[in-house]
Design a protein around this nucleic acid. Structure first.
Lengths: 151, 151
DNA sequence: CAAAATTAAATTGTGCACAATCAAAGTTAG
DNA sequence: CTAACTTTGATTGTGCACAATTTAATTTTG
């Protein structure tokens, strides 16, 4: 296999990731419309739901950013919109005024159940097998670790 | 496996695609900076380079949109910027004034060689095996086909 | 043919991503 | 203690994505 083939393979992988990510967003669109949130907001809420169930040491914007690989330039306005919608609360940490503590409100947590309900109604629609999804997830994890310099 | 497990698996796949796609963009950033283009512009140019080598019947904005699953709202301004940079030419089709024909300029085509050169210098850096990349690409293709309602 | 329907691209508006910069709070060192 | 440094989040500006609407060209129909 020549270098040129390797490059083509790499480019194809790039494009498939780009296309699949957007296709997944589109697939979730009907649910998101019903919930009244965007896909990135859903991603953020997934973490905040998890934090609600199993509170970590730090529930800050920084911790959220590390988890999602997003900076404050993306998170600050997104969280403000979720706050505006009554789904999230933000407040300065009294013990360190640089930090902003973030958590879901009762209303925000309630969305979790609505999302589950909607997704459960769709479970039968999947013709892609769970084994394949599971395997794909694992391979993507490996790729992600490599790209972010874990290895 | 319960419905709840299925939902969690699905959500994890969503997030991995979202994260991997952005991580890949970051990985290409040094090259893109040198070429003076963005990641989506690179994706568009990859198609236009291919069109240059093997011209399809229709070299229009519409054909580009179908190939990349992007609409004119995204493509029009992006192509205008590439045109501004002298990498792409756009002109109305004389035989059907609704259409806009798109192709790379000589300068735009020359970027292909620069990209290849840069990527070839990086080939050794990959510790992810080609087999894995190839397999992953195939699985993503399968997922994409399913999500876009082929099958 | 002329009206209605369709098609292709452009435009408008919202919300990410992300680089770069800034401001304020906190920590460290002289 | 205070000056230098670091950390955290906010702000600013650019460029996608994408929904919704608009405009103009073409095709279809009555």
């Amino acid at each position: 296999m020549t270098d040129r083939d390797i490059i083509r393979l790499d480019n194809q992988l790039c494009f498939m990731l780009y296309a699949c990510s957007r296709a997944m967003t589109r697939a979730y669109q009907p649910m998101l419309k019903k919930l009244g949130i965007t896909y990135p907001q859903y991603i953020v809420l997934m973490v905040l739901w998890e934090w609600h169930d199993q509170p970590p040491v730090e529930q800050t914007v920084k911790a959220l950013g590390e988890r999602l690989q997003l900076d404050s330039g993306t998170l600050t306005p997104l969280l403000k919109r979720l706050e505006q919608a009554g789904l999230v609360s933000r407040r300065r940490d009294d013990s360190d005024e640089r930090r902003v503590l973030v958590e879901v409100t009762a209303q925000g947590y309630a969305l979790s159940a609505k999302a589950s309900e909607w997704l459960q109604s769709q479970v039968g629609e999947h013709s892609v097998s769970l084994d394949k999804i599971s395997q794909l997830r694992g391979e993507l994890r490996e790729l992600l670790d490599h790209l972010t310099g874990e290895v």
